[in-house]
């Protein structure tokens, strides 16, 4: 039985339906981007009409970097909930009793996070563009925001950064036994790619097309490698029994050390042990 897009889509549809029914998830998804919207707007509006092109370019560049924080941070918490959350609400075992393959489950879950996260990133970008056209006092701001490399960087980096957060988050979720721990670790692990953003902001690196391409390729490779690692980490047996190999299975109850097993006398001829002496 091969990879099925239909099964992956079924998982994705379920994820999106669950978000829609959960005001808390929608709320947290909406609030964080608003925070990252305010500072770029302030930066843009503070650029006076007489500011030169170089200064405008620098300000707009930092605005783009800020916009990338949202798609990197947003998915972390949700991705970290994805597997351990299913376990906690008792829905993982029924899912795994179906023909669903782990790659289908993981990709369905990942798409369920990437769609709202990247969508939100693009909406922020569109709002900034719109506000700049309507309210910016310096015409150079609008042209700087509309530059091709900036737009390509935004379109490219939003899903790649989200991909990092999602795979790390799902990986943690597949190994964690507690939702809160998974979410804390997930948030922390989304920070490394943002370090590059911070280094650019502090002028340690100068943003350039070359840097952007190199960083994008590194992120793409990291996303693919992480997907493979997370697939390998997804241990059906461990997730179902809720324990490592040394622990007793959940629902299977206490198990008996081999030495302690004592057979009671069998009822005459009562064992269905075909071919067993």
């Amino acid at each position: 039985m091969k990879f099925s897009v239909g099964r992956m889509t079924a998982v994705l549809r379920k994820e999106l339906r669950e978000y829609r029914r959960s005001p808390f998830i929608i709320g947290t998804m909406a609030v964080l981007p608003l925070v990252f919207l305010v500072e770029p707007l302030v930066i843009i509006f503070r650029i006076g009409p007489t500011v030169g092109a170089a200064a405008v370019d620098k300000a707009v560049g930092s605005t783009f970097l800020l916009l990338l924080i949202a798609p990197a941070l947003l998915p972390a918490v949700i991705a970290a909930y994805s597997v351990v959350g299913e376990r906690e609400q008792g829905t993982l075992e029924p899912l795994l009793t179906t023909p669903l393959r782990r790659e289908e489950l993981l990709l369905g879950k990942a798409l369920g996070v990437v769609v709202p996260a990247v969508g939100m990133g693009y909406i922020l970008f569109a709002v900034i563009q719109l506000c700049a056209r309507l309210f910016a006092s310096n015409a150079l701001v609008v042209s700087a925001l509309g530059q091709g490399p900036h737009i390509i960087a935004e379109v490219l980096f939003a899903p790649l950064l989200a991909g990092w957060s999602i795979w790390v988050g799902i990986g943690i979720s597949a190994r964690a036994s507690d939702v809160r721990v998974a979410q804390q670790l997930g948030t922390l692990s989304s920070l490394p790619p943002l370090a590059v953003v911070a280094l650019v902001s502090f002028d340690v690196f100068t943003p350039s097309v070359t840097l952007a391409v190199v960083f994008a390729v590194i992120l793409l490779i990291a996303d693919i490698v992480l997907f493979r690692i997370v697939s390998a980490l997804f241990d059906r047996e461990r997730l179902i029994t809720g324990a490592g190999a040394q622990k007793a299975p959940a629902g299977g109850g206490d198990v008996i050390p081999p030495g302690a097993v004592r057979r009671i006398p069998r009822v005459g001829g009562s064992d269905d042990r075909r071919g067993h002496p």
Partner: peptide, 13 residues
Amino acid sequence: FGERLAFEDVSFT
């Protein structure tokens, strides 16, 4: 499960 036994030598049809 490691050293622990869950069930052993079960046969039926």
